[in-house]
Design a binder for these strands. Structure first.
Lengths: 225, 225
DNA sequence: AACTTTTGTCAAATATTTGTAAAATTTGCA
DNA sequence: TGCAAATTTTACAAATATTTGACAAAAGTT
């Protein structure tokens, strides 16, 4: 896990990087926004610890920049602030910072928060899995297993199942299903969606029953059996 | 959004509840773990603010309890701690608390953190629920529960109930009902609407009595205080 | 009380929606 | 290009929901 620390105070920066490196992270320090921007052009970290007070470009500016770009807006950011800055603290939280540290903070606390934020923001980073009972969809491998048994799904079937599993319990209209999976407007009066639901149900065996039909509406994945 | 505050200090608890309620949340305060457990038996909040130091059962215990049960482990928890408790603070973070507040904390900060955690934990949309007593209509799931028991409604019944629940106490003429649910003018002298009202009443069991007939006009959902 | 109007109830008739199978078409790939 | 798999379409069967009209029951009127 790559962590970048943007902090102008060299001694703080060094101890942050040192601590993180000795805790199985790959930490890199940056003394100002410019150096940080340079690095960002060629690489992306998994988390950023950002001092709110920086020479040149302000930390809040930088946060805004990160959250505005679709490339970087998903990278979690922990803001480091000086004491007695409640207003700025709130401002940065509302700008999309994921947590913050009030200086002076202990290294134990920093590591805890880094871990907590990573856990929170990348719950699937470990493995991109969607589960429901004995049903497991592995998004990385693009595979599906039913009770540890690998089954073969076609693309549409896979995408349908993914959609259902990432919104368990939610009822989708055929329209929505078509929009999400096919990416087009559902106009035709054909049984296309129903057809794929059917093949999916068959391939899922007993778990096929989890896909309930909501008469007059569409389909829903019923969780909890 | 329901928020439950578990805090033994009455003045702190009151101001928390007051602030949250005046910020469009539905906050409820609990002075100890026992009262909280009682409430949890019949309802579930969307977020919990939990004091780490409680009389009787400890806040950390309570957090552990919440995170151990599949029913409650997804409810985000913000821990409130006294100053100078770094060790416990870290412990609670690692137990799965989603954030924490160090006393004394400002109400502005509390609201900011509550919002931030809710944003983080409910990235999708808020659940769209319509409620009246033990009657719950979940628009996303397209489901209806009566005293936590799922019941099966047909489309027309569902739409009728939705219409009533979103305008509690309002009397609708058959004309209006037909317009809203069927999307057409009600001309015929048939018993169509009455028929659906009947089946709905039957399926709702005791709650069926909530649908009152307004003689000469139509129907109304009577809500109890 | 007798009458009128409105609402409740029921089962049959009708209409709609979904499941299924097979055929037609498209797509990806060797 | 030609084949095989995937996808879409068509047609029909099955399941389910909705409507209807006749009549009973209840509520209001005179």
């Amino acid at each position: 896990m790559k962590i970048w620390c943007v902090e102008d105070d060299e001694s703080i920066r060094d101890i942050e990087v040192y601590t993180l490196n000795s805790t199985d992270f790959e930490a890199t320090g940056f003394s100002d926004a410019a150096a940080f921007h340079d690095a960002l052009a060629t690489d992306k970290p998994d988390l950023i610890i950002l001092d709110i007070m920086l020479p040149g470009e302000d930390g809040v500016e930088l946060l805004k920049f990160l959250k505005d770009s679709p490339d970087t807006c998903r990278i979690p950011v922990i803001m480091a602030t000086a004491k007695g800055m409640e207003y700025d603290k709130i401002q940065s939280l509302d700008l999309g910072a994921d947590d913050y540290l009030v200086k002076p903070f202990g290294m134990m606390e920093m590591v805890s928060r880094v871990k907590a934020v990573l856990r929170r923001c990348n719950p699937t980073e470990v493995e991109h899995l969607l589960k429901a009972g004995g049903l497991v969809v592995n998004l990385d491998e693009h595979t599906v297993t039913v009770d540890r048994e690998r089954i073969q799904l076609t693309l549409k079937e896979f995408e349908l199942l993914r959609l259902f599993l990432s919104h368990p319990g939610i009822a989708f209209t055929r329209d929505q299903l078509f929009n999400d999976v096919w990416g087009a407007d559902y106009i035709s009066e054909t049984r296309t969606v129903d057809m794929h639901i059917r093949t999916l149900r068959v391939k899922l065996g007993d778990y096929g029953k989890m896909i309930e039909t909501v008469r007059g509406v569409g389909y829903r994945l019923e969780v909890q059996a």
